[in-house]
Simulated assay, not measured.
Amino acid sequence: MLAIQKDILKKRKPARAKTLQRFFKTGPGDYAEGDIFLGLTVPESRLIAKKYKDLPLKEVSVLVKSPHHEERLIGLLILVSQFSKSSEEVQEKIYKFYLKHTKYINNWDLVDSSAEYIVGAFLYNRDRKILQKLAKSKSLWERRIAMLSTFHFIKKGELKDTFKIAEILMKDRHDLIHKASGWMLREAGKRVSEKDLRQFLDRYAAQMPRTMLRYAIERLPKEDRLRYLSLKSN
């Protein structure tokens, strides 16, 4: 057992773990079926990640592949920290490692705390076609990675990829994708251009899943929200 794993186990809270397993839908047939929690708080996980921020990639791999949710989260937080301070060569190594381990990045909080900071950041000045491939993946989590990665671009004032991925995911059947897409569309309008968001909504509101639409229009005036919702045919 790694030293970091011993530190993680010292913080385990069985009662809280049970609550987390219900909250993160780990039961039979749920989106995170079989995920195991130890009960750490997010601040505790972040403190441990900070303490071990220089952990070698080989040991980070042990964490990312762990059956314990918090160990995977801490491994990803370490990767995010290392990516932000590394050379382009090391960043590419971390990016490739991340994409090779997507099957372990298998809950919404794991995606949301890492995708934009690694995948989005790496692709910012590079070809982004991989995002369209991820958006068409059979994996729920790869599809969410595609959407959340565009948050980095939004923060840089670029919306093209956010709208493109949202269009690809328009017919997705999973609520977690509807929420992620709507969230990114809302951020696009709030942070960069409400006009561009409205143009997207004018074209696609009637086709969008209701949850996606509701998230996307959350910051618009009430009369506009009602108008877009009235366009829904189902």
Rank of each mutant, 00 (worst) to 15 (best):
Ala216Trp: 01
Lys65Val: 12
Lys136Met: 11
Asn234Asp: 14
Asp202Lys: 05
Asp30Gln: 15
Gln82Gly: 06
Ala115Tyr: 06
Gln5Met: 13
Leu231Val: 04
Lys232Ser: 14
Lys190Val: 07
Met212Gln: 00
Arg203Trp: 13
Arg186Glu: 10
His174Ile: 04
Lys156Arg: 10
Leu197Gln: 00
Val64Asp: 00
Ser45Val: 05
His101Lys: 10
Lys103Leu: 14
Ser87Asn: 06
Leu140Thr: 00
Met212Arg: 01
Asn125Leu: 15
Trp141Thr: 00
Thr150Ile: 13
Ser87Met: 11
Ala121His: 06
Pro221Val: 04
Phe37Tyr: 09
Lys13Met: 11
Ile168Thr: 04
Met170Phe: 14
Glu44Leu: 08
Glu116Thr: 06
Leu76Thr: 08
Asp161Cys: 12
Ile74Pro: 00
Gly189Glu: 03
Leu229Arg: 00
Phe153Ser: 02
Phe83Met: 01
Glu116Cys: 05
Lys65Pro: 05
Leu79Met: 06
Arg191Ser: 15
Gln199His: 15
Leu159Pro: 01
Arg143Phe: 05
Lys103Ala: 15
Asp202Trp: 08
Lys160Glu: 12
Leu73Gly: 00
Met184Trp: 01
Lys25Met: 10
Val119Gln: 03
His152Leu: 11
Ser61His: 13
Val90Glu: 12
His174Cys: 08
Lys133Met: 09
Ile4Gln: 03
Ile165Asn: 02
Arg12Asp: 07
Ile105Thr: 03
Ser66Cys: 09
Glu59Thr: 10
Glu33His: 08
Asp35Trp: 02
Met1Gln: 10
Ala166Val: 12
Asp175Asn: 06
Arg128Lys: 15
Leu9Tyr: 05
Arg225Gln: 11
Leu231Tyr: 06
Met170Pro: 02
Gly39Met: 09
Ala3His: 11
Val62Leu: 11
Phe200Pro: 04
Ser137Trp: 09
Thr102Val: 13
Arg72Asp: 00
Leu9Thr: 02
Lys133Tyr: 08
Ala121Asn: 05
Ser193Ala: 14
Leu159Ser: 02
Lys129Ser: 15
His174Met: 09
Asp54Cys: 13
Met212Tyr: 08
Ala206Gln: 09
Met208Cys: 05
Ala205Glu: 06
Val90Asp: 12
Leu9Ser: 06
Val80Arg: 00
Glu116His: 12
His152Lys: 09
Thr211Arg: 09
Lys138Ala: 13
Trp108Glu: 08
Lys171Arg: 15
Arg191Phe: 14
Lys100His: 14
Arg128His: 11
Arg128Met: 11
Glu89Val: 04
Val42Ser: 14
Ser84Phe: 13
Glu71Lys: 03
Leu148Arg: 00
Leu148Ala: 13
Leu229Val: 12
Gly157Arg: 02
Leu99Thr: 06
Phe163Asn: 03
Leu47Ala: 14
Phe37Val: 06
Leu134Gly: 01
Ala15Asn: 15
Leu229Cys: 09
Ala146Lys: 02
Gly182Asn: 03
Glu89Lys: 15
Ser233Leu: 14
Arg191His: 15
Lys103Arg: 15
Asp127Trp: 12
Ser149Gly: 04
